[in-house]
Amino acid sequence: MRKKFGIDIDGTVTSPDTIVPYMNQDFGLSLTYSDIKEYDLSVHVDIPQAEFAKWWLDNEAKIYKASPLTKEVKNVLREWELIHDLYFISARSKHLLELTNEWFVKQDLPFHHIELIGSHDKVNAAKQYEVDIFFEDKHDNAVAICEQCNIPVILFNTPYNQDPVPDGVVRVHSWSEAKAWVDKWLKENA
């Protein structure tokens, strides 16, 4: 039976360490991916949060355009596109839709729909599109989607999402591990 998969983009489809070199270069830091223990990246720079927000707005398009894929994602999504609907739901701002579409085409990634909501609150979009499962890297998003939509959420393990997770949020370390869990879930819920 065809399912709708809700999939975050940044840190899930793209490599979660994408922004680290940009921060190191622009702020004179020497951060490593494992140093990023919080989702809020502004805690790593010694400038006001508003100034960091401006830096992000000035650089987000460049960073998104150059974001590398996370390992294994293309093969898994190519297999799933044939039997499921892939709905990418991202906190990116709506004005980045054309850039995002172009990035998907350049990366040769399959998709059925891309929704940029401009907010980290993805619950309404998950409900609107009636997704059956969600793939996420942000801890509080994963928990909220799981609890409010009553669907399983695959949480890709990162240094910044180490808080405990409730039943229904499944922590994985790779797309192949996610695929194995999803394959089992699909068989159990056929």
Rank of each mutant, 00 (worst) to 15 (best):
H173V: 13
L116E: 01
T100W: 02
D26K: 10
K184F: 05
E130M: 08
K179S: 09
V13I: 15
I83W: 00
I117W: 00
F5M: 15
N75A: 13
L69Q: 03
V73I: 12
V76R: 02
L96N: 11
V20K: 04
I47N: 02
W185N: 03
Q148K: 14
W55R: 06
S42G: 05
G28R: 03
F134M: 11
Q107K: 10
K54P: 02
Y160N: 04
K3I: 01
N24L: 08
V73H: 03
V45R: 10
N75I: 11
D35A: 13
V165W: 03
K187W: 01
V182P: 02
E60Y: 06
V105I: 15
Q162A: 08
S176D: 07
W175R: 03
R2Y: 04
K122N: 10
E79D: 13
K4T: 15
K127G: 08
D8T: 09
R92A: 06
A66C: 12
Y160I: 15
E98N: 13
S67T: 05
I133Q: 03
E177L: 03
I7W: 01
K71L: 12
A190K: 06
T70K: 09
K4P: 08
D8F: 06
K127C: 08
N157T: 12
L29E: 00
Q107I: 08
N101M: 11
A50D: 14
S93K: 14
E102W: 00
L31I: 12
L41N: 07
A61F: 07
N189F: 10
K179C: 04
I89N: 06
Q162L: 11
W56I: 08
E136P: 01
E60H: 06
E81K: 13
A61P: 10
A190G: 12
L109F: 04
V73M: 00
H112C: 10
K37A: 10
K138G: 05
N59A: 05
L86H: 04
